[in-house]
């Protein structure tokens, strides 16, 4: 249980941001289940990695800034790190899937650029 003395409006803002972020992440995970092929599914986790992450980072910045009474921006580092790393993992994973599909001659393998 939290024992902070942050004002009511800040608590509502934090909760709204966190729920929005969690909502986008959840929709991304649902997409991982609902979409039919790998190349469609690979788009789904980006939802959590961009807007979902950004909203939760914003909630964290608001909460700790109000709680400690000064601007706490260190959570932005997580945002920066994820923004730079998520495309790298997704591109490499896409390349791996492309390579595997092409060598096996699958019908839904990507065409040549």
């Amino acid at each position: 249980m939290t024992d902070t003395d942050i004002p009511l409006w800040a608590a509502c803002l934090v909760v709204a941001l966190a729920l929005g972020g969690a909502g986008f992440s959840l929709i991304g995970a649902i997409g991982l289940i609902r979409l039919r092929t790998f190349y469609e599914r690979v788009h789904a986790p980006t939802l959590g990695a961009t807007l979902g992450m950004a909203l939760i980072v914003a909630a964290s910045v608001v909460f700790f800034s109000m709680d400690e009474g000064r601007l706490v921006l260190r959570d932005l580092l997580i945002g920066l790190f994820l923004t730079v790393t998520t495309p790298v993992t997704l591109i490499l994973l896409g390349r791996a899937a492309t390579y595997r599909d092409r060598t096996e001659g699958n019908a839904d393998a990507p065409p040549d650029p």
Binding site: D5, V14, L19, G21, L26, A29, R41
Partner: peptide, 29 residues
Amino acid sequence: MSAPLILAYGLGLAQAMLVLAMALAAWRV
């Protein structure tokens, strides 16, 4: 409602949603 109560319930709900997302992703694994 007081601020700590809102935080406790709202953030608990957000956590539950994220855990559900983890479960869905684990199902894909």
